[in-house]
Nucleic acid binder design. Structure first.
Lengths: 233, 233
DNA sequence: GCAAAAGTGTTGTGTCTACACCCATGT
DNA sequence: ACATGGGTGTAGACACAACACTTTTGC
């Protein structure tokens, strides 16, 4: 079962890359930033942005560095680690581990991206390189879960928004209908949203002016701490 | 910002280890399996069990292999990835990434462990090597969360148990009081527990015989899928 | 006035906590 | 009988979904 110990200097080491599932709600759909590979393996296939880990940097610094080539890092409202993939055959050319991150971009920015990089609707992905399809879907699941029990919406919404706008973002991200009425009450009760006091004037077709809101915090917070088995008191 | 690309053959690669936070409820307290280091760095300090990743194995295979030296792997009722640590200074001697796992051992087994390995109460940890203290606490947090919205209890409980016994396990793991009354109702309503039909005869001091239960599933399942923002219907 | 959009009131349901009370056994 | 441990009944708090209704605007 246990193997003969070998000198550390000769122990083979895996290559290590960082990847990111960068999500944004665009045109009413949840989309992911994909990049067309310029070399083997999977030349020409769509894949998640990322690249090699360099000495003296953390995984998070690494993915931020690689993403900086694709999108302005200041536009990333949230970044968190998803998981580390390690199937020895995930890259046919070399032994390579990949640590995946989830990044969220607010709806109001349209980052300038390079020629080889475009947004793709998550529900209609093309064939992806490596295990990137599974990683992308895992990122979407993480987002959907966190929209329910944290204030994660702050990272997808514009700084200031109406409830209708926020509703469209939740619908796109969750993949099912959400009523503006109940969304408002849930998020206000939890203290996640606060009114700015301003209103949005209606368009040509009329309608009551909408109150404007913002997220109270711009960092991830758990807002529904314990579903059950709460501490007594 | 971007660096000069270098040939892959000369790119430095980090060492990679796997670690496990192995938790069990012992003597009414949540405990973690720690190992006393036999070499530098942190010689003599307590640390999480684990070791180097070998070629042709996944991270999960790696941690299972290393744990096999410490506890019979068949006694691990659940194993899941926690996170990958990457601070370049986390190991003072070399550049080393660590992928941490959470492992759970049912309360009825007392695994034979080597001389240099013992159980420690999580709420009273000694000084730990590297970043292992933070990892251990992260493992406990993951467990506490999953006890609330999944059937994770199956991995801490004996195969068959009374509600009093299950209650003690939850109290130890969650760190606060839990009433057997409400624990029973929550877990039965969700279909997580099922009665075996048998009863436990009372001890010398008398008392009503307790009904025996078991977990319906022995693999992790989400039992409280959406706290809020459920799909309509 | 009428359509459009936003927001409120209200009802019903399900899930949880807390606590009083009842049940089965040993001495 | 009474102590001990197990189990049930029930009331109240709360959070949520659903939907009817009202408000505020443009035309």
């Amino acid at each position: 079962m246990s193997r003969k110990p070998r000198p550390e200097s000769t122990r083979p080491r895996p290559a290590h890359v960082t990847l990111a599932v960068v999500l944004q709600v665009r045109e009413g759909r949840l989309q992911v930033l994909l990049w067309q590979r310029a070399r083997e393996p999977f030349l020409g296939a769509w894949s998640l942005p990322g690249g090699y880990l360099e000495p003296r940097e953390t995984l998070e610094q690494s993915i931020r560095r690689h993403l900086a080539v694709k999108v302005d890092v200041r536009e990333l409202a949230h970044l968190e680690q998803l998981e580390t993939l390690s199937d020895p055959n995930r890259n046919p050319l070399e032994w390579e581990l990949a640590t995946a991150y989830l990044g969220l971009v607010p709806a109001d920015v349209d980052p300038a991206v390079p020629e080889d990089t475009t947004w793709h609707t998550v529900s209609r992905l093309p064939e992806l390189a490596f295990d990137h399809r599974a990683i992308t879907l895992a990122g979407r699941e993480r987002l959907r879960a966190k929209l329910s029990y944290t204030n994660a919406g702050f990272a997808l919404a514009q700084p200031v928004f109406t409830l209708s706008e926020l509703r469209e973002i939740y619908v796109a991200a969750l993949g099912h209908e959400v009523s503006a009425t109940n969304l408002q009450r849930v998020l206000l009760r939890r203290g996640v949203l606060e009114p700015t006091g301003d209103r949005r004037e209606p368009g040509r077709s009329g309608g009551r002016p909408a109150a404007l809101y913002r997220f109270r915090a711009r960092r991830l917070e758990i807002t529904d701490q314990f579903a059950v088995l709460r501490p007594p008191g």
